[in-house]
Nucleic acid binder design. Structure first.
Lengths: 123, 123
DNA sequence: GTGTTATATAACCGAATGGTTCTATACAAC
DNA sequence: GTTGTATAGAACCATTCGGTTATATAACAC
């Protein structure tokens, strides 16, 4: 019997970080250059600590890195995890292109990528 | 002053659904053909109702559709939302390719895509 | 030193998440 | 009809999440 490995991967944190529209908007903003917390917070109706929390989530997911410049902690985008997301989704390309059927060639491949040996604990 | 629109989009549900490794494993399994709940549950140490819950999340995100065949409710993969994910991530491709700097050409484009007018309520 | 600015941290809150067990429903088999 | 099988739903629970306000820290300006 094949048991799937449900160990948390980098993808877990990345997808979770991207599930929030505020965080995606922050990434979009950072794509045009680094910015401090105040500047990032300006477009939203949420408090500064809420933005700081979002930034911590993005940082833990490796989507941003933070520097130091006087009192400011400028954030910079790190797109590496986004490449992992793109690569992951890309594995299903044939599926959305070939009309939902007959992906049997992918059978072994996709399963090997996400599965592993039996485990006794969830985490 | 520019306010970002943080309205929930389809991407919200898609990314949230993909953040769980069990659900990604289910999608991988479904890439090789439709399957019932019992069959999908087999590789995991979680209960059948837990799997049913995961399937409901995937269904709400549009990642699967469910049929009916005797007592079974076979699930089929719908990769449409995965294309949206791939397209979204793809917008950052130059960023992970061009060494993290100088993406100024993207400035206007990415921001227009995620922003909107000021809103007074969060939802 | 004082004051100001930028950010983080703490404490709290309500809602959502991911799991459980127990029960109900729907269909097939007999 | 009864029994068995596949699935969903309800109730519950602990944890996480996204927000808040109030406070603390850090670095500059004076």
């Amino acid at each position: 019997m094949v048991l799937y490995n449900v160990r948390a991967t980098r993808l877990d944190d990345t997808f979770a970080a991207l599930a929030d529209p505020t965080r995606r908007a922050i990434l979009a903003r950072l794509a045009s250059g680094e910015a401090g917390v105040m500047e990032l917070a300006k477009p939203f109706r949420i408090s500064q600590p809420a933005v700081s929390k979002h930034l911590k989530v993005l940082e833990r997911a490796g989507l941003i890195v933070r520097g130091r410049k006087a009192q400011s902690r400028p954030c910079r985008l790190r797109a590496g995890p986004l490449k992992e997301v793109a690569d992951w989704a890309e594995r299903y390309r044939r599926y959305w292109e070939e009309g939902f059927e007959r992906l049997d060639a992918y059978l072994g491949k996709l399963q090997r990528l996400e599965k592993a040996h039996a485990r006794k604990s969830t985490k």
